Amino acid sequence: MITLGIESSCDDTAAAVLDDDDTIRANVVSGQDTIHARFGGVVPELASRRHMEAITVVVDEALRRAALDLRDIDLIAATQGPGLIGSLLVGFSYAKALAFTTGRPFVGVDHMAGHLLSAFLEPVKPCFPYLALIVSGGTTALFRVDDFFTFTLLGRTRDDAAGEAFDKVARLLGIGYPGGPAISRYARQGDAERFVLPRAWLEEGSLDFSFSGLKTAVLNQYRQIGDHRDDRLLADLCASFEQAVVDVLVSKSLLAAKQLAVSSLVLGGGVSANTALRTILTDRCRAAGLQLYLPAVQHCTDNAAMIAFAGRKWLQQKGPGSWSDDVFSRSQLGQVSQTFR
Results as ranks from 00 to 15, higher is better:
residue 2 I to Y: 12
residue 6 I to N: 02
residue 8 S to A: 13
residue 9 S to H: 08
residue 23 T to W: 00
residue 35 I to A: 04
residue 36 H to Q: 10
residue 39 F to D: 09
residue 45 E to T: 09
residue 46 L to P: 02
residue 51 H to Q: 11
residue 52 M to A: 14
residue 66 A to S: 14
residue 71 R to P: 00
residue 72 D to E: 13
residue 83 G to S: 06
residue 84 L to Q: 02
residue 84 L to W: 02
residue 90 V to H: 00
residue 90 V to T: 02
residue 91 G to L: 00
residue 94 Y to S: 06
residue 106 F to C: 03
residue 109 V to I: 15
residue 110 D to R: 02
residue 112 M to E: 05
residue 117 L to H: 08
residue 125 K to I: 12
residue 137 G to E: 06
residue 141 A to M: 12
residue 142 L to A: 02
residue 143 F to S: 07
residue 148 F to D: 14
residue 148 F to C: 08
residue 150 T to Y: 11
residue 163 G to D: 09
residue 165 A to I: 07
residue 166 F to C: 07
residue 167 D to Q: 10
residue 178 P to M: 07
residue 178 P to W: 04
residue 180 G to T: 12
residue 186 Y to L: 15
residue 190 G to T: 11
residue 194 R to I: 00
residue 198 P to T: 12
residue 199 R to E: 10
residue 201 W to R: 15
residue 205 G to L: 03
residue 207 L to T: 11
residue 211 F to A: 04
residue 212 S to E: 02
residue 233 L to H: 13
residue 236 D to A: 13
residue 240 S to P: 12
residue 243 Q to V: 00
residue 244 A to P: 06
residue 245 V to E: 06
residue 253 S to N: 10
residue 258 K to Y: 07
residue 261 A to S: 14
residue 264 S to L: 00
residue 265 L to W: 10
residue 270 G to T: 09
residue 272 S to V: 06
residue 284 R to E: 15
residue 288 A to I: 11
residue 295 P to E: 08
residue 301 T to Q: 12
residue 301 T to S: 10
residue 307 I to A: 04
residue 308 A to Y: 01
residue 310 A to G: 07
residue 314 W to A: 04
residue 317 Q to E: 14
residue 317 Q to G: 00
residue 323 W to N: 03
residue 325 D to K: 03
residue 326 D to H: 04
residue 327 V to D: 01
residue 329 S to M: 12
residue 329 S to V: 13
residue 331 S to N: 01
residue 340 F to A: 09
